[in-house]
Design a protein around this nucleic acid. Sequence first.
DNA 1: TAACTATGGTTGCATATGCAACTAATGGAT
DNA 2: ATCCATTAGTTGCATATGCAACCATAGTTA
Lengths: 154, 154
Amino acid sequence: MQELDLEIDLEKSLGPWLGKTIKITDYYLHEAFQQHGLDISKEQMIVLGKLNKNDGLNQNEIADLIWRDKSSLARLLAKMERKGYIIKRQHEQDRRVNLVYLTESGREIFRKTRPIIQKAINILEMDLSKSEIKRMIEILKRIQDNFTKELKTL
Amino acid sequence: MQELDLEIDLEKSLGPWLGKTIKITDYYLHEAFQQHGLDISKEQMIVLGKLNKNDGLNQNEIADLIWRDKSSLARLLAKMERKGYIIKRQHEQDRRVNLVYLTESGREIFRKTRPIIQKAINILEMDLSKSEIKRMIEILKRIQDNFTKELKTL
DNA sequence: TAACTATGGTTGCATATGCAACTAATGGAT
DNA sequence: ATCCATTAGTTGCATATGCAACCATAGTTA
């Protein structure tokens, strides 16, 4: 009995379900990109998306936008540059800064990912009404705020 | 205009919010383990949890339970064995199989993670009623099912 | 001007992860 | 008994990630 009381039933908590949902979503995108012959990872696609919306960002700005460490981003960009999707240009005034630009090839591959992304969103929200989606996002935001607050007290 | 029409507003979709929520949850756990001097990662903690509930599983069984590739699990176990949290014993009848057992030290550190996990669950579900949690889990399950179905048609 | 500080980016070291190819062992079929 | 297929686990190669230490440049302060 006491042993049982100590058990935390993780499966009844939200955590693992969130994790598994992300996992299968990622897997779906990975498979779909592959099937369409797109040589790109989800993470790289996200970077292309930010640049597509706002070309010429510097590395730290991109890192912030996608919630990654700047070192992680630097390595992501290195791979993308090798594949010819982006180019880095040194800022003329401040030589510490690299401005990152989409190449034609990068813009092209991002364009090709769009219908796949749209389909993934459709699947994700297939059974949900607009208001349910809004509600879910609100809840997720609130969870994030709660963790942020608790982190400060650690 | 046409350019705008082509834009997908990812931020209004569920995907990135799920991702960010997981990210901050993971970060919280990581920080909390560190602050308590627990030399363990979230992934390792999950493995310990499965073994704590069901000692003597083999590697493939554990991999299935935590939705990881067997190779990923093998490496996780190697680290955990080095730290003395688990031991692997060859199955007596079937020498291909490794049965994995918690050590005392493994059981001990898992015990110490429990209040931290419980707190993380509390934070995660802080603003949610029981029925909302159930509803969220149902939705997440449905999303997973939808992706699973769509994967087959790829 | 020299010294100190802050910033942008890179690199070493570490974690976790998956796929594909591989080894070893098992079990069945001929 | 031998060959074949299956299964459990390992390993090579690749991705992505974060922290901390570092380098180079810029900006500020004495």
